[in-house]
Structure formats: structure tokens, C-alpha cells
Computed example of a mutant assay.
Amino acid sequence: MLHILTHDILPVFSMLALGFLLGRLGKINREEAAAVNRVAFLVLQPALILPLIARVDFGAFQLGALGVYALCQAGTFLLALMVARKVFGREPVEAWLLAMATVFVNSLLYIWPISFLIYGEAAALPITAIVAWDSAVSFAFFIITTDLMSNRGASAAQSLRRVGSNPVLGAILLGAAVNLAGLAVPEPVLTAMHFAGAGAAPLTLFALGVILSGQRIVPDGTVIGISAIKLLVFPALVFTALQVVPLPGTWAQMFVLNAAGPSGAMAFALAMLHGVRTDAIAPVIIWTSVLSLISLAALA
């Protein structure tokens, strides 16, 4: 457990911690970090996502397990949304993103590299399946719905143009089309995307750390409640639900490991992109990132 924590989990977490430290020391300011976050979100993440979706072997996935995981996501999301709105009185878009933070784990930028360090590519296939699901379906869903909720006064044509021009969503759709058509991505293109995509995780985590350093981190009721749903309710629900689905190898263990991971940076990135308040979303990401260190090491 200690070896996994020090050799596999903390090195990935260190980029967020470094950003937080440099932000607190005033070496990097919020505006600089926001610009880095925007570049990582709109340029580097598409380069990371497209080859993943284009080359993944969907036939190797345990679709029953993915279906159960998706149902657990839906149930947890609805619970968190109701709690954020009815119990803590948060505005609709903020409540939507807080609920997203309970089910959209930092799989692509955090759990995926950790699982590869620990188990290697073959053993990490379950995490790859979740990353593909969250990238192709969950993330696309939240990109579209958050955009529509944040621009209620826009016409249907304006909304369609804005959503259609999102490069992350474009990368997801293009990758899926290439995969389903059985096409091969040219090697020079793959090389360029791998070169660019390698910077997506560290830059996003670093920028997030800088931005979070300027936030109030003392948890209030909203932060405690949403973090508890993320770290306790969601993994417990996934663990319980998967007991009725027979799975080979490490599939069940990896699904629970992923569910126990910290809240994804994407909820924060979408909040920044659409001007949604982040005084609750940011601490949720901080506390779930810190508190999940021990649980991830134990589950791994």
C-alpha cells in the first residue's frame, strides 16, 4: 500500500500540489493558470481523447459492468443534484456541476495514468473502458447540457453552432467515427497527438492547483455533503451493484477503484468556461483529491 502511494499515486498528485504551492506563493497567478487550463482543455485534451476513442477495442469491454456503472452514475448524480438544490440551495447550473463532480471521476487525467503505472496496459483495460465511456458519453453529455443551461437565451441555431465548435466534443465524435469505420489514424497524426496529449494531464492538474490555491478550502456544509457523496456513496453503490454481475479478472476491483477516485477537474473546467461560481466546486475537488489518496492506495 505504501509503495503504491509513494511510487504511483503521489507522483501524479504532485502536479496538482505543485500548482497549489506556487499559487499560494504568488509565483503563478489565476489569470495565467486560467489561460493554461483553457489551452489544455481546448487543445491538448482533444489530442489525448481522439486516439483513445479511435483505437480502443470496444469488443474487449465488459458491457454489462459498464451498464451497471452507468446506472450507478445516474443514481448518484440525481441524489447529489437533489441535495445541492434542495438542501444547500445552490443555483441550477452550479448544482448541476456539483452533481457532475460526484460521478465524473478524474479518470482520464488521474486514475488512468495511476492504473497504468500499477497494472500495465492489459490489467488497466477496465479503467480504459471507463475512460472511453466517460470521454465519449458522460463528458459529451455534460458539455452539451452545461452549455445549454448557461445560454438559455440563445437560439437553437446559436446553441448548435457553439456546441458543434467545441474541439473536445469534436474529438470524441471523430474518434468514434474512425473507430466504427475501422479506419487507421495515420502514424504522423498519431505521433503529433501523442506528443500534444501527453501534456494534457500534468498541465490541467497544475493549472487546477494554481486556481484552487486562491479558493477558500475550509469545507462548509455543501463541500462536506458533496464530497461525502463522491467518496462514500458512489463507490459503495458501485461495489454493491457489481456483486450481482460476474466479472473476470480485476474488472470489479478496478471499477470500484475508479469510483473511489477524486472528483474530475472537468466540472471545474466547465464552471470556469461558463462563468459559474467555483467556491464550492473547487474545495470539493481539493478535498476529494486529498482524502482519496489513502483509499486509492488501499484499494489498488
Rank of each mutant, 00 (worst) to 15 (best):
A95C: 04
I49L: 12
F104G: 03
I49S: 01
R161H: 10
L63V: 15
G89E: 06
M100H: 14
T128V: 04
S159H: 10
S138P: 00
Q73Y: 01
C72G: 00
L71Q: 10
Y119A: 11
R161K: 13
Y119V: 03
F116S: 05
R162I: 00
R90A: 00
A123V: 07
N106W: 10
A156E: 13
G67I: 10
D147Y: 10
P51L: 07
S107G: 04
A123M: 08
A80E: 08
E94F: 08
R161D: 00
V87K: 14
A40P: 02
V39E: 07
L79K: 07
Q45M: 15
L97H: 02
S138R: 12
V137R: 05
R90L: 09
L42E: 07
S150R: 13
R90N: 03
L50N: 02
R162E: 02
M82V: 06
F142S: 06
N106M: 11
G120H: 11
E121W: 02
R162C: 00
G89H: 14
E91P: 03
L44E: 00
G64I: 12
T76M: 04
N106F: 07
P46S: 04
V93L: 15
L108A: 15
I130L: 15
Q62H: 15
W133S: 09
A84C: 07
V163A: 07
V93T: 13
V168T: 11
I130D: 04
L66C: 01
V83L: 08
F142A: 10
G153E: 14
F77R: 15
I118E: 06
L79N: 01
V105S: 07
K86A: 06
F58N: 01
A99Q: 07
L42P: 00
V168M: 13
A95M: 08
S115T: 15
A54T: 12
A47W: 09
V56S: 12
F142M: 06
P113L: 05
T146E: 03
L125P: 00
L109R: 06
W133E: 06
A136L: 15
V87W: 14
A95F: 13
L81Q: 01
V68T: 12
F77L: 13
L71W: 10
T102N: 01
L42A: 08
V103G: 04
A101H: 09
